[in-house]
Simulated scan of single mutants.
Amino acid sequence: MRWVTAQPTRRGALLLGAAPLLVLALGYVVAAAARHADNPADKILPLPGAMAAAMAGLLFEPDQLSGQYLFWADTVASLWRLGAGLGIATLSALLVGLALGALPPVRSTLGPLVTGIAVIPPIALLPILFIVFGLGETAKVALIVIGVAPFMMRDVAGHIGALPREQVVKALTLGANSWGVILRVALPQALPRLFEALRLSLGPAWVFLISAEAIAADVGLGYRIFLVRRYLAMDVIIPYVAWIALLAVLMDLALTFGSRRLFGWAYLGAR
C-alpha cells in the first residue's frame, strides 16, 4: 500500500482526525497537573475543573449589572457581526467577481482597484473605520467586509476568467448575449467557487472580528477574551478560544456540506 493512494474509510478518517485532538488534550492535562503539583495557585495552565467552574458562571448565571448570560450574549453578538460581514462580502464577491471575470472592460477598469484594496492590511484601516463610522457595529462589520471581500472577488473572477473559451463561444453561437453568458455559463460555475472562497475566508474573518471587538466593544467573544486577560483568567480565555475554534469548524463543515448538496456536479471525480 502506498500512502499517496490510501483512502481511509469514513470511520477511519474520523478516528485519524480525532487522534491529534486527543493527544493535544491529554498533553495539556498532564502539563497542567504537573504545574499545579509545583504551584497549586498556578493560573497559566488551569485544570479542567477550574475552567468548568469559571465557565459555569458565564453560562448559567446572569450578570449582576446587565442581567445577561454573558457567554451567550458574547456568542450572539459575535456571530451577528460575523454573519453580517460575511454576508455582505459574499454578495459583493459574487456580483463584482462575475463582472470582473466575464467582462474584460470591467476587469480593466475595476481590476486594479480591487487588487489595490486587497493588498492593504485591513487592520491598518481599523482606525479610519472607527473615525468614519464610529465605535458601533458598522465599523466592525465593515472591517470584515474589507478584509475578505477583495480576496473573494479576485478568486471568483480568476475562476470565471479561466473557464474554457469554447463555452462562451458556444453560448454566443446559440444566441446568448453577454447577460445570458453570465447567467447561464458563468454564474453556475461561480457558485461552487464562491462557497470555497467563503470557507477560506472564515479564518481571516474571525481574526478581523476579534481584533475589532478587542479595541472597541462592550460585548462579544473577542471583547471578553481581552477583558479578562488583565486578570490572567486563562480559565476563561482557553474555553473561549476553544469555543471560537468549534464555531469555525462547524461553519466550515456546514459550508462544505451545503456546497456538495447544492453543486454535486462540481465534485464529480473528487476524492
Results as ranks from 00 to 15, higher is better:
residue 59 L to Q: 03
residue 143 L to C: 02
residue 129 L to S: 04
residue 158 G to Q: 07
residue 206 W to A: 00
residue 68 Q to A: 12
residue 27 G to R: 10
residue 49 G to C: 06
residue 85 G to D: 07
residue 197 A to R: 08
residue 103 L to D: 00
residue 24 L to D: 00
residue 21 L to K: 05
residue 16 L to C: 01
residue 39 N to Q: 13
residue 196 E to T: 12
residue 28 Y to E: 10
residue 124 A to Q: 07
residue 141 V to M: 06
residue 113 L to N: 02
residue 189 Q to I: 01
residue 221 L to Q: 08
residue 164 P to G: 04
residue 242 A to K: 04
residue 143 L to Y: 08
residue 209 L to K: 06
residue 17 G to H: 09
residue 168 V to S: 11
residue 269 G to W: 15
residue 121 P to W: 15
residue 175 G to R: 09
residue 136 G to Y: 14
residue 103 L to Q: 06
residue 194 L to I: 11
residue 170 K to I: 14
residue 98 L to C: 03
residue 136 G to F: 15
residue 93 A to V: 04
residue 31 A to P: 05
residue 190 A to M: 12
residue 49 G to M: 12
residue 261 R to S: 01
residue 162 A to Q: 10
residue 213 E to P: 02
residue 54 A to R: 13
residue 245 A to W: 12
residue 11 R to W: 15
residue 256 T to F: 15
residue 245 A to I: 09
residue 78 S to E: 03
residue 34 A to R: 14
residue 251 M to W: 15
residue 103 L to M: 11
residue 231 Y to H: 07
residue 89 A to T: 07
residue 235 D to L: 08
residue 153 M to C: 09
residue 138 T to V: 12
residue 149 A to P: 01
residue 26 L to S: 05
residue 122 P to S: 05
residue 158 G to P: 03
residue 95 L to T: 03
residue 84 A to F: 13
residue 131 I to R: 14
residue 90 T to M: 11
residue 219 V to D: 05
residue 237 I to S: 03
residue 155 D to Q: 14
residue 144 I to N: 10
residue 203 G to A: 11
residue 17 G to M: 07
residue 155 D to E: 13
residue 180 G to A: 05
residue 195 F to R: 06
residue 58 L to M: 12
residue 259 S to K: 11
residue 245 A to T: 05
residue 32 A to F: 13
residue 271 R to T: 12
residue 50 A to L: 14
residue 261 R to F: 08
residue 7 Q to S: 04
residue 123 I to N: 02
residue 54 A to G: 03
residue 113 L to I: 13
residue 190 A to V: 06
residue 27 G to N: 05
residue 154 R to W: 13
residue 229 R to N: 05
residue 114 V to Q: 08
residue 234 M to A: 07
residue 100 L to C: 03
residue 223 Y to P: 00
residue 79 L to A: 11
residue 177 N to V: 02
residue 198 L to N: 01
residue 241 V to I: 15
residue 40 P to H: 13
residue 152 M to N: 06
residue 209 L to Q: 04
residue 127 P to R: 13
residue 212 A to V: 04
residue 97 G to H: 11
residue 174 L to E: 05
residue 165 R to D: 08
residue 45 L to M: 12
residue 66 S to T: 13
residue 88 I to N: 01
residue 67 G to A: 08
residue 49 G to D: 09
residue 232 L to Y: 15
residue 154 R to G: 10
residue 59 L to M: 09
residue 74 D to V: 00
residue 167 Q to N: 05
residue 127 P to C: 07
residue 69 Y to K: 00
residue 168 V to E: 14
